[in-house]
Design a protein around this nucleic acid. Sequence first.
DNA 1: TTGAAAGCGCTAACAT
DNA 2: ATGTTAGCGCTTTCAA
Lengths: 336, 336
Amino acid sequence: MKVTIKDIARLANVSVATVSKVINKKDKDISDSTRQKVLEIAKNENYIPNLMARSLVTKKTNTIGLIIPDISNPFFPELARGAEDKANELGYNMIICNTDNDIKKEKKYIKMLAEKMIDGVILTASLKASAEEDVATNCSFPIVLVDRDVNSPYVKGKLIVNDFRGSYLATKYLIEKNHRKILFIGGPKIIKNTSNRFNGYVQALKENALELNDSYADFGEYNSEFGYKSISSYLEKKVPFTAVVCGNDLIAIGVIKRLKEQGVKVPEGVAVLGFDDIYLARYVEPSLSTVALPSYAMGVAASELLIRALENKNNCNENYEIREMNTVLKIRESSW
Amino acid sequence: MKVTIKDIARLANVSVATVSKVINKKDKDISDSTRQKVLEIAKNENYIPNLMARSLVTKKTNTIGLIIPDISNPFFPELARGAEDKANELGYNMIICNTDNDIKKEKKYIKMLAEKMIDGVILTASLKASAEEDVATNCSFPIVLVDRDVNSPYVKGKLIVNDFRGSYLATKYLIEKNHRKILFIGGPKIIKNTSNRFNGYVQALKENALELNDSYADFGEYNSEFGYKSISSYLEKKVPFTAVVCGNDLIAIGVIKRLKEQGVKVPEGVAVLGFDDIYLARYVEPSLSTVALPSYAMGVAASELLIRALENKNNCNENYEIREMNTVLKIRESSW
DNA sequence: TTGAAAGCGCTAACAT
DNA sequence: ATGTTAGCGCTTTCAA
């Protein structure tokens, strides 16, 4: 049988109220001797407060949720870690929810989190039909958005990734290196960051008066299989190109794989750029030139934003903080 | 203000008990009409049951914990996904805890999980000083072990990975391919699976009467940096070798990276074997020959074992199930 | 400086 | 078929 606050009270010959005060360090007006006694007994009895009972009265769980679309994309574990480390540091726990880019799952998780009475949630970009019918609209707890747009009074902060600028700079870099036929292979079209990344690419082409050919862009999944498949079909169709801007590193890795199989050298034959800068980007062969996102720092910032909002009593609704995370172009061996 | 069971009861002109029964589908003896009425009102009012209140009385949270040592090692997200999918399917939620191989963090998490009154925990291999002082000894809820040993009456199941056999077979394969000077570069020595994997390697050497040279084995971290560093020092010392058995895929990727920088071809100059078969193993260049672990299936099995134990009323203590997960040697391009 | 008591939202005997 | 009621373990006001 678990030992409760009652047991401690009985053993210490004090009331449960006193024990509660000591446990919660609200002990300004508790005598030193009682405090000591209670603390000692609590330790001896291996007392563990029941957080559910506590939350039931305080209406605070000190737990936040993190909703991510794809935990097998290395970008997200890194973000999760940053978020968790910061949350822990600030006295919060975190529940990670992986939606597999599935709206149904996302809905389910949001419901689950609501039932668990979490204090708030960090919502990262995910597939979605339209901003209006975003499931997040149904949240009734504070939200911090990462690379995503939701209209709701519950939104307390927003992390913006300058995806546009990232791929714009990346593409511009390729153009400066004299590439003229540049493919774009991105993730799912309905994800916002996909279109942002695509638009940056388009902008760079336009500025340099380069032909903007529809057949030069392909959209699919943010994984290596898709990169492999997509580039295969360009190869088959004998589309001429000398560089590929990829929606993320996983796609880039798939592209490089296929290119090599075809006997095309990277970067000599074709330059390939990734996006994200996952852990393995510098270890693959050739190491990946990529638009780096500060994944860990993003997680940290998201937690910070959310928890600060949670602890801010004067809940000024309309004025939430927007923080922009900048991308950095890292040139390694897969491009020149 | 959140709507509670009381509100629903009031609106439906019934007692809270009736509402509770309907909500929990314990409605054998509730009239169809009341059931309908209650359900409808609950939906209209957007009623969300407060799980904490429920758990407080049922002593069941329907939540399990998953403790993993390193979420940036792609093996673990895959396992986590399997565990979570299965848990969800069986009506459970899962909280992922990442310990960074840090005993202190592990302790903290176990305490946190206890406070949150989780129903049970899946504990995966981690650094540890000795079996006896394993933090898990302090758990007071059902445990399922993955690749780890703990002595506790709370252990309700165990997943064993045949690490030994995996690296034994891998090494044997290399020997059959006429490799004679084979290095072993493993993870931290105090992790059990490290020594298991090492022992398999040793066994294969012995059986083939090959020299077992201490300086042929190195132990460090399960990441690419370590692989890179370790092989560098072998290269510097001009130790002769034609093959490397690595403790995991990340190490192998670091090793290959360094080898190529040195102008050593893989597999022509040196064959490299990994362990785990992470998602990117088949996408790196050359694709990685590796001892595959069924990461997703392991997660599924762990959840299954744990939840079955949780739901098994006649809690026969001493007789828990042990399930062995087998490894499969996958030969790709990094070896021959 | 301490304690009594109400109540958080819910479930489960037990009545009716 | 439905309702009454006693808690689950805790915090918090208010009184002593």
